[in-house]
Design a protein around this nucleic acid. Structure first.
Lengths: 103, 103
DNA sequence: CCGTATCCCTAATGATACTG
DNA sequence: CAGTATCATTAGGGATACGG
């Protein structure tokens, strides 16, 4: 999104980073700590392989999570919230809590 | 979304209600109080006519805003946050604040 | 195990014109 | 002023197969 839009309304900028079906969920699952790629994907049973990769790639690109590759066989990859990602923890918790409180 | 998914993760349910480009923005602009349809749309200069109508319709359907029609000419319509919508105020403020704090 | 590449389909969004 | 209808476009998403 353009900077002009961000200045116009920061909320729109926030949503451009996490306003999708899967991103908040992925971030939420990473709150307890770093997690292997396969396990994180298992936490979102209905996500397709393609969307999972796309989701974590964009979250990494936007600096919300970090990706760590272990040079072992079989391959091992872990994802973890960055400082920027952790700064969303409270908001994610509130969004989750709000959902649980609705009829 | 299915109830099973909601139970699985309330966050997903929340995002199904407000996890779009325009919905959080519309709700945010209504925080100060009720607003005429035309003015609300002006607050989101880049939204198309079609998307604006769709956005407010869905927010109304989901009980987050109310729609009040005044029987006058020219037509006058006002939108306002419902109790359920107001319960999101704090979260919306935080999302906006988070966006403003990013580089 | 992890990720990419490809193909395909549907849903989301935009532009324009029109009605009460 | 507010909203609808239509058409055209694009982005989102899923299935499958393959590669490091």
């Amino acid at each position: 999104m353009k900077d002009s839009e961000k200045d116009y309304c920061p909320l729109a900028y926030t949503m451009s980073l996490i306003g999708t079906k899967w991103k908040p969920l992925a971030l939420f699952h990473l709150i307890p700590g770093s997690m292997r790629s396969g396990l994180l994907q298992k936490k979102m049973p209905e996500i397709s392989n393609k969307m999972f990769t796309q989701t974590v790639r964009e979250l990494e690109r936007d600096g919300l999570i970090s990706r760590k590759v272990f040079p072992v066989v079989p391959p091992k990859v872990e994802y973890e919230l960055t400082g920027k990602g952790r700064s969303l923890e409270d908001i994610l918790q509130r969004l989750d809590k709000w959902g649980s409180e609705q009829s």
